[in-house]
Design a protein around this nucleic acid. Sequence first.
DNA 1: CGTGCTGTATTTCGATTAGGAATACTTCTA
DNA 2: TAGAAGTATTCCTAATCGAAATACAGCACG
Lengths: 188, 188
Amino acid sequence: MTDLPNLPPTSWAVLGLLSFGEELSGYDLKKWADWSLKFFYWSPSFSQIYGELKRLEKVGYATSRVELTESTRGKRVYAITQDGLDAVTRWAREAPVEPPVLKHGVMLRAWLGHLMTPERLREVLEEHGAYAAKMSRRAEADAEGAAEVAEWAYPELVLRWSARYYEAERELTRRMLADLDELAARED
Amino acid sequence: MTDLPNLPPTSWAVLGLLSFGEELSGYDLKKWADWSLKFFYWSPSFSQIYGELKRLEKVGYATSRVELTESTRGKRVYAITQDGLDAVTRWAREAPVEPPVLKHGVMLRAWLGHLMTPERLREVLEEHGAYAAKMSRRAEADAEGAAEVAEWAYPELVLRWSARYYEAERELTRRMLADLDELAARED
DNA sequence: CGTGCTGTATTTCGATTAGGAATACTTCTA
DNA sequence: TAGAAGTATTCCTAATCGAAATACAGCACG
């Protein structure tokens, strides 16, 4: 049992996208990530994706070829190798369980409530709640899309999780607004 | 109305920590962040904090002096300036509402369920659930600590939010485990 | 027919952020 | 009285983010 090479999480995410077996270009990968990963993990920049692909090819986890269309325009498409598939599989199974990373700017501002007016804080929270509701609906819609393809059972599962997650965000926001009411009442 | 200088979020977070009015060293700041901000925003590295402090001093949002103790050992403590206080205040009130950033490695692995054994996925989820439970308890404990100081009303509010957030994570994990059961049942 | 918009496809750059390791001194504890 | 734990700061590198630059294809609209 050799050790897994110490690739950053981003590499595993890209390799994970390729693990479904399709040949994809950097641009395709970006679209797939935005369709599915962005809800719970990542909305990568192009520069990251293209960089990762080069690295994956260098370590032998992916191969690429230039696909030519009728017109002059070509694109480079990447496919996972057996080595790459073995490696992500091992990563998924063996990597230690890491805590999720959360950077919640809205809560940072609520934490600085002493600098804000209560009205403005409310506004910020309302806006965040609306965002969470929108994300929940989108995740739900994408989950329904995933339900149509048998291979996407796990992506579907996680998209359902995401829909609930954003719904929970919304509920949490509502409860904070209620706490805020209480705080204001206490101050009278 | 001039524009706010375009500082990175990290700067505002550090300035926010200083906005409670105390003189703090980089080391102190790190401890405060770990006590409170880490639940919903950030567990900064020392290098980041010390770097930010230098920047804040350069733009005039903080001042520093070397505090000498009885022994030879000294430390540099930072205080927010009026300019700095005005700036964070404006930032808290005026900055656009940004979506939170979430990088959920556990869900990324669930998303790659086709590479895992159901047992291992379960284990990973159980471990994550235990982590969420632990974080919820810690946030609750810190919220109780904050409740004792009148100035910490908003930090307390956000710590309560955090306790609920991690509790929601736990519940979401339970529901995913249930979905997984269903998926397994369907496959029979 | 041309002009501009949207979508595909990739690269480049700089700034930000993460994380650990290194250093060094103090205080507590066994 | 050595060693562990806590305080205090710096350095370095890799990873990440985000925007812009480039370029070509296809389509719509006048």
